[in-house]
Write a protein that binds this DNA or RNA. Sequence first.
DNA 1: GTGGTCTAGACCACG
DNA 2: GTGGTCTAGACCACG
Lengths: 129, 129, 129, 129
Amino acid sequence: MVQIDPRSSTPIYEQIIQQLKELCLKGVLKPGDKLPSVREMATIIIANPNTVSKAYKELEREGIIETLRGRGTFVSENAQKTLDEGKINMIKEQLKQVIIDAFYAGMDINEIHTWIEEIKKEIGGKGRA
Amino acid sequence: MVQIDPRSSTPIYEQIIQQLKELCLKGVLKPGDKLPSVREMATIIIANPNTVSKAYKELEREGIIETLRGRGTFVSENAQKTLDEGKINMIKEQLKQVIIDAFYAGMDINEIHTWIEEIKKEIGGKGRA
Amino acid sequence: MVQIDPRSSTPIYEQIIQQLKELCLKGVLKPGDKLPSVREMATIIIANPNTVSKAYKELEREGIIETLRGRGTFVSENAQKTLDEGKINMIKEQLKQVIIDAFYAGMDINEIHTWIEEIKKEIGGKGRA
Amino acid sequence: MVQIDPRSSTPIYEQIIQQLKELCLKGVLKPGDKLPSVREMATIIIANPNTVSKAYKELEREGIIETLRGRGTFVSENAQKTLDEGKINMIKEQLKQVIIDAFYAGMDINEIHTWIEEIKKEIGGKGRA
DNA sequence: GTGGTCTAGACCACG
DNA sequence: GTGGTCTAGACCACG
């Protein structure tokens, strides 16, 4: 389910976080679903257990998954909206940078809007639009 | 002109790159404009010349600025569209990740479209849309 | 394996690049082979790790080697042909300059063809001819 | 006659040397021909006189041009063959590097032989073949 | 242990 | 003065 690219410049733990978030938004992973244990996941994706653990902890900190002692790790029931202003500004800043790079790559603004619609479709009705 | 935040997790050289790209798109920096020398810029932003040099070299590699022997560093005349497919896919992937984070931060798709229009206005008609 | 001449006017990082390229073409280094880490290589050739790192990064940019997160640096599977027109013109220009120098050094055209055949044999059937 | 590219990574004095050598081999510049003075040349190609001077001195050292006190600088009568073994080895080494780069750029050995024939034709019968 | 970032500082080629 | 190369050394993120 999770696909790691060891050649990517994106850290492995970050790739895990991004892909699990995407799977949750898409609804492939539903609230209550059990995730593989840290060790299982490490075996599946061929990574260091510490790396998987780091990803799980971050996702837990964001309230996307939760660990029930002795039972395992599960997708949270309510992936609550954060609405942290600092975070929103950070995301806007990131968005600006991506768009600047997109312009330099030859894209225009309409293509970007179209892409976003495609992404929206891809991750589906689970996005809280 | 360039504002560095040494506490940011974004590397200083990356901050320089991003801000110079933005200034070029906005038209604050125009083709042919002379950039401060590596040493001058280092003094201005209080950073090491090596760090500035790294940023300048990357911008030169991307064709955004160019060094004229003995005369200094200048904004390139034609920051030509690259249209590198690999790069475009990378940017789409980045865009997807930002949007996923935006959803988790409580944004909806319409807000994102609005943001993009704001960013478009901010970086102005110089964006090659 | 790599021999650095610190007295040469060719920068050390450039010598590393040239020799690793040659070893790859000769087949001494094969796709998948692990390179010494930056620190190891620096110790071996008695140079600064930063200098080795610069060479490795350039080779990675050219697609000749690649870094696998946490595993090290390896010779790429497919050192794909670039076929970048600008690059080819640059190489032709360099070739012209070398040949001009060869003429001034007393060589004739046939000797040059012979040399090239010798170089071809030296770097062997791995050259994608 | 001489065309300088200030954007090139090749030093300007080196560009002057290379182009004057080429013009001599092609026969555009013939033995006895007068070269522009350092200052004239600097004005023509828009360069620093020191830079032109450096190029002229190097060409003089190689016996390709000579300065007659009070009369000016002229193309030498006998562009004598050097046959310096150290130099020949250096040229062979340079040739090898160019060919390695050519292979990586997707060329094969026959194309290289063809290029060399083209270069030979371009610089003409003056090459001592 | 591995590479990435950064600083401080030196020396040099070039113009 | 300008950028290019190199060293020494520090700290950190990642695995």
